[in-house]
Design a protein around this nucleic acid. Sequence first.
DNA 1: ATTGACATTGACGCTACGAGATAGTTTATT
DNA 2: AATAAACTATCTCGTAGCGTCAATGTCAAT
Lengths: 254, 254
Amino acid sequence: MEYTINSIAKLAGISTRSLRYYDEIDLLKPKRISSNKYRIYSQKEVDRLQQILFYKELDIGLLEIKAIIDVKDFDCQKAMEDHLVSLKKKRRKIETLIINVEKTILSLKGDKEMSNEEKFAGFKKKIVKENDEKYGEEIRMKYGDNTIEESNKKLMEMTEKQFNNVEELGQELNRTLKEAVNTGDPASELAQEVCNLHKEWLTFYWPKGTYSKEAHLSLAQMYCEDDRFKEYYEKIVPNGAEFLKDALKIYCEK
Amino acid sequence: MEYTINSIAKLAGISTRSLRYYDEIDLLKPKRISSNKYRIYSQKEVDRLQQILFYKELDIGLLEIKAIIDVKDFDCQKAMEDHLVSLKKKRRKIETLIINVEKTILSLKGDKEMSNEEKFAGFKKKIVKENDEKYGEEIRMKYGDNTIEESNKKLMEMTEKQFNNVEELGQELNRTLKEAVNTGDPASELAQEVCNLHKEWLTFYWPKGTYSKEAHLSLAQMYCEDDRFKEYYEKIVPNGAEFLKDALKIYCEK
DNA sequence: ATTGACATTGACGCTACGAGATAGTTTATT
DNA sequence: AATAAACTATCTCGTAGCGTCAATGTCAAT
């Protein structure tokens, strides 16, 4: 059975333009070109297209799809897991955006009730307390009482979603740190990505406008001097605290 | 105080390329151009840039930001609410992608436990039952027993998140339907968007590959002939069932 | 006078096509 | 057989928000 471009397009529910594009980028070549220059596809190409569309629905880029299908010993599972991570990252970003837009709308309304948030106040109070007990002293010493109060207030204002969000961010930070330590190079791209995540993570707990590279670096040094911090990061991965400090040094000074 | 392009860029933490681009699209013009063709900014422009960056952090497009800032009686709150809707839509999409990628990974592992899902099995059973009682008969008549069993199975396999997802989708469907009925035109863009949402909603409950425009259209006709369906959509908005049928006719036949 | 840091205006690249122009080919109708 | 309708082809521009050269001009310091 042979198909023209239109019949295969209708079969798959995509445009002929897409098929021409897939031909152009060598993702899906027609079986042959007829004498009148028409593209002729066969069942084999239909099958391949099915695969392409399957991965496309998962929002995977066309070039990666090509690799998945063509490269024989491609680690498909790893690709999917990586993709999952990037999707979760996007979700976190959107969650944050939604929360911020909602806050903006509330402030436009002049409405400061935030009643839903109060429902989680007890829960969050606990987190604040833990956070304060763990790191309160250090931050207080470095930046004064005002900062820590602001930080707590900010935490109090977090919605439950935001909390989940930052929890997930923390997990990603830890996971990426582990990977980065394996590279052994605090200047590696991965290590600098860790710093980015760490910065994101920090800005959740530090009040608005507090963040600066200097403060970030100073915190990094604390990480190694203070045994409690050190222990925390060592538990995640051996040499974690030291590595993070080195990476942050490079990150903050460039 | 006057600023060069570099100083203002560092101040705001963005690239000079961005500032040139903002100039190009008339989003942020420098106060004046010096004799050597350099862009010179003043405090006023810094303030404006702050505003721009605020909205940019909410992921609002530059052209819309321009409107928000420049158009005096711009309904900012409505813009934010619209934006919120589109963000939630994106979130839903990503949630679905995540679920599908997770399923793909599971099937790659050959692991069919889905233990987390089972936690919600009881909860979902209830939903399945309700769904079955409401619409089971009709679907059974039209498409046979096999389909409804598949449908239930599919529902059973849904994670709680997916459930929330489809709930939200249903709400958007209802909301959009209300708006569309107000236009009065079943061929309007909004009405056709309703059809799209309805299709999306259906594909959650119909087993894979079942969807066709014919089946969709046939369902639409049921909506009007059957009082229970009619009542359901009438409750959402007067004339809802009739309008949806007309819109779906146009949608399915084009 | 030279160097280095900063400025300028292009122009291409990125993603996955949509849309349109223009031209040739096949199929259906009169 | 003539004509119209439907289908095919290639080519080009546009999308959003810049990053990244490239080529060139300007300013401050050595």
